[in-house]
Amino acid sequence: MKYAVRTAKVIAAALGLAAIAAPALAQQGLDEPFQKPFKEALAGKTVAYVPVAMNFDLTEGWYAGMKKELEPLGVKFEIRDPNWNTNAGAQAVTSLISEKPAVMVIHNPDVQTYAKLLQRAENEGIYVIQINMGSAYRSSAFVGANWIEIGEKDTEAVVKACQGKSNKIAIVQGALSAAASAYTLKGVENVLAKHPEIKVVSSQAADWDAAKAKAITQTVLKQNPDLCGIVGFWDGMDIGTAAAVKEAGLTGKVFVATSGGGERKGACELVKSGAFDLNLSYDVPTQAAQMAGTIKWLLSSGAKAGSIKGSEYTTLIPITKENADSQTSCWNLSDLKK
């Protein structure tokens, strides 16, 4: 009993000792030396976003994605919406230069208009990230789709679908003057150069307009009922192309390939319904994440604006009947905003 009591005392003492010593003996945390400067580098900084316009899937998606990533870090995320007016956009960029945000995220309307201004901005020490549509000036970073690749992949798919058929295809371009349209056309030409058997019966610009795309396609289909494929340049416009195909009763017989931001209603559901056979998505949420990542990296690097220059081309997701049902192929805006 006595022993037992002693033992108990020893144990108690040991326990007490252990209790006292425990903090010293437990696993000790390490201060990560770079996260604080990272946070400091970002907090209070202003990032200005100049899309060509808000209110459409791409720009809204990028906006929501970047905001979600950046605002918790104390970054002030501002938006300048020129609403399709190139002149207003140039003015917005000009006044941003004198306001001196830390980073400018620029969605160019064409390859030239902002080029001089962006150069000036980087000279003034503002990082410039160009998204989806580059300019003649190469800035710190480009994040976006590779239009040539889009043109090539779409055309390859159409050429493949045409095998053993009439080999007649049509091209529905965007606006002639838009670089995205011109680059995509270059990709189309690259592939067609390798396939001399393919005959382009019509290559028209529909000006990003669904109604015009439908009118053109209708006429082309009336002239060439044996058409085997159409390369479209944007899914928002090619709704019209697809409607013309459907009305002609040629759904499934004419292969419609297009591209877009991969928003659920505009991409997956239309592929599911058979309107499009292939929709190459440049997956806006991933792009937004890449943009946010680039901003974080640039701000925390401390590099001089314009001293380093790089590009991140988006990996394209080909949406076809096989993956159109998958949750990951497409995105929708309300989810992205959550």
Partner: peptide
């Protein structure tokens, strides 16, 4: 009529 014929309403047509 236009929306029905292209199965969507591209409101951007206002800018055209």
């Amino acid at each position: 009529v236009m929306a029905a014929s292209v199965n969507s309403m591209p409101t951007r047509v206002f800018n055209s």
